Simulated scan of single mutants.
Amino acid sequence: MSVRDGLVQVGGPAATGGTILRDRLRRIPVFAGDLPRFDPETAPDDPVRLFADWLTHAIKAGVAEPHAMTLATAGADGTPSARVVILKDCRDGGWEFATDARSRKARDLAENPNAAATFYWQPQARQVRVSGPVLARGLRADADDFLARSPASRAAALAVRPGEPLASPAELEAAIAAAQGRVEREPATVLADWRLFALVPLEVEFFQGDPRRAHIRVAYRRDDVGAPWRHELVWP
């Protein structure tokens, strides 16, 4: 790998014939369909209001799992890790998600309490990016969130040991079956390792794709949690 004029060159000269995967990828259409419009002049002062509006629009449009977000964390050594989680709520300035304290994301947050999340609503060519510090909501909120989950979800959470070696799918099935019995017998059981977190952003960006690539991108920023927001239209 070498760097020349600010460009990174990897290996030898680029292949001229391409690859099957590259050719397939380049034939996939992007920003297709009847996309919504976004007038940046109408953006409110608070990004939570705009997020709620976009999320509501996605729900009404039938976008699949619009509450799914890609959450990126990094531990003390800076190694990034990303996965898809479910947004539980957006309140008190925080985008909430829950996880097992034994999971990698929880361990990352214990070492580096900052994260970034991305929502992608493909049928609408819309993205929302959120980044900033992550706060623990507390034991009462942890328990309330866990008990609000479906019995099947509670059983799964009680059964698993995140990231540990698993002998076979049968072992997992047996553990979940045993946990389902426990949930039926003891419906008030709460997983002690369950945690509810809130990503309280310092930056929120809204991206509206355009088939001509004239994308609209509005960035909200603030200097500290609790400080007033400012927003501007930025180049895509």
Score class of each variant (00 low, 15 high):
residue 44 P to D: 01
residue 63 V to C: 14
residue 65 E to A: 13
residue 34 D to C: 05
residue 28 I to M: 14
residue 39 D to T: 05
residue 30 V to Q: 14
residue 38 F to R: 02
residue 41 E to A: 12
residue 51 F to C: 04
residue 26 R to L: 14
residue 36 P to K: 05
residue 52 A to V: 05
residue 33 G to E: 12
residue 38 F to K: 00
residue 56 T to R: 11
residue 50 L to Q: 00
residue 55 L to I: 10
residue 51 F to D: 03
residue 34 D to P: 01
residue 55 L to D: 07
residue 52 A to Q: 13
residue 63 V to Y: 06
residue 35 L to W: 05
residue 40 P to E: 06
residue 49 R to F: 01
residue 38 F to N: 02
residue 56 T to V: 05
residue 51 F to M: 07
residue 28 I to V: 15
residue 27 R to E: 14
residue 47 P to L: 06
residue 42 T to C: 04
residue 57 H to G: 12
residue 42 T to L: 11
residue 38 F to Q: 02
residue 35 L to I: 07
residue 53 D to S: 08
residue 53 D to I: 04
residue 70 T to F: 04
residue 30 V to N: 07
residue 65 E to P: 00
residue 30 V to I: 15
residue 37 R to A: 11
residue 44 P to E: 00
residue 53 D to C: 01
residue 58 A to R: 01
residue 41 E to P: 00
residue 31 F to Y: 13
residue 27 R to F: 11
residue 46 D to E: 12
residue 40 P to S: 10
residue 45 D to R: 09
residue 26 R to T: 11
residue 30 V to C: 14
residue 28 I to C: 08
residue 32 A to K: 09
residue 67 H to M: 03
residue 48 V to R: 05
residue 68 A to F: 07
residue 30 V to P: 01
residue 30 V to H: 15
residue 27 R to Q: 15
residue 30 V to K: 14
residue 46 D to N: 07
residue 67 H to L: 03
